[in-house]
Amino acid sequence: MITFSMDNRSIAVEKGTTVLKAAQANGIEIPTLCASDALTPYGACRLCVVEVEKAGKRSIQASCSLAVEEGMIVRTQSARVIERRQLVLELLLARCPEVKVIQDLAREYNVADKAPQWTRQNETCILCGLCVRACAEVVGANAIQFAGSGASRVVASAFDKKADDCVACGSCVFVCPTGHVKKIDLKKPRVTSHEDAPIDGPVREIINWKVSQPLKLCKKCKNPFAPANQLEKIQKQFYMMPQVVDLCPTCRTYPQVDKEKCLGCGSCMESCPVGAIELDDRGGYDKNAQIYKQNCMACHTCEYMCPVLAIGS
């Protein structure tokens, strides 16, 4: 454990924790636009800067990528920090005046009306790199990358053509803080489809990467539920019950725990690919597995792993 001081509070966290995570765990608010728990720190937005005092020297550091050190003094609300955050927000607001998350932050830091002194652009992307990292680290598709340098930097698919490696999973859309990356699910392809070969039936378009992928229909209710390519990729990476790739989340049968039979051994918890199972601890050896339905994707791996057949459909 490492003890350090943040905003005059003494805080102890595990070695290797970043200052940002330590702050979040202790209810200290630090604004950020490019950090995510699921992704490696990147340090692009510079909004999470804090003032750090080490051996009498004060400096400004990005908290998302700064590991805690014994005895360091961190100030998250000093005048210098606020001034730097204000400037970062002014620059972002001048770049993206129409983006709500930036407007809100700017209002919070009282810079909403200061932006006019900077030259305005009308961008929506702040180049935080969340989509790029999510595509590379979580999806493993590497379909998009930064292109260009300096002021002309953008996120783009290779050569700005249709992204061949994209499975249209929509992770980039989900993580984008500004709504720059857009997807749209359509009943049938638009006439101006980016795809060369026409597709019949429902498609998902990721507009930014010029991708349109057919959506798979649920075998039971006949409603489209996920891009076929994404399901194929998941099936290749993990062992999956056919129902996961054939049925929509509504029509799947979910595993349930028979609390009488459950021993609380934890085999199911360890085998769950998406971490949807936890042991609900009631003290001593009296534990029960609990499946959180919102995370469960009904692969039924737990059912096979249970030694006492306590999990059934």
Partner: peptide, 22 residues
Amino acid sequence: FFLDESCGKCTVCSNGMPQLHK
């Protein structure tokens, strides 16, 4: 020179350089 040679990674550099240049 800096407008071309900045990599564009962090906000302050990629947005600050063009503003400074203006």
